[in-house]
Amino acid sequence: MTPEALLGGFADAPRQSARAFRAALESMARPGTLWSVEGAAPPAPLSVAAGVLILTLCDGTTPLHLGASCDLPVVREWVTFHTGAPLVTADEAQFALGTWADLTPVDRFAIGLPDYPDRAATLIVEMPSLENKGPRLTGPGIKVVAHLSLPETSAFRANRALFPQGFDTYLTSGAQVAGLPRSTIVEAV
């Protein structure tokens, strides 16, 4: 194991993960809003925000899929050392991490069962940047309308059509995170 894999975790896990979760909760509850998180220093190419989400939400009970661009020895070691999450293929994953190109086609991921729609994957999509521009978002958590720079719209529209099944998404860039639950209606503008 490389020394790099041992560094970059939370220094004060209970408090730092609590603050990170609040940002994760607010961003999933208010799609289209951008939140900043801190506390993790994951190895490249992972963003701070992706690292924080992994540390906050993943553990030995949550199979994680690493997309091709993230599937490096140092990332595998970092995730394993800090969370113990088993690394798996896309179809078995509860969480998946990668760029949009890594994660597509997204129909490989679990969308839950008709009677247990919660048994669905959460995707963490690394983005070059995040801004309140682009596709129009409406639905629960949005007062009127929001905009978010999504990598595409058709995959999210197809996902919304599966409701209440479907995957949920976090978009990360640097220290920023935005949430896109399956309930959000996405329209290209």
Binding site: A24, A29, L57, D59, P117
Partner: peptide, 13 residues
């Protein structure tokens, strides 16, 4: 973490 994951799925559905 287990409770937080459940809350997030609850918010999404």
């Amino acid at each position: 973490r287990m409770i937080r994951r459940a809350i997030l799925k609850g918010v999404a559905i």
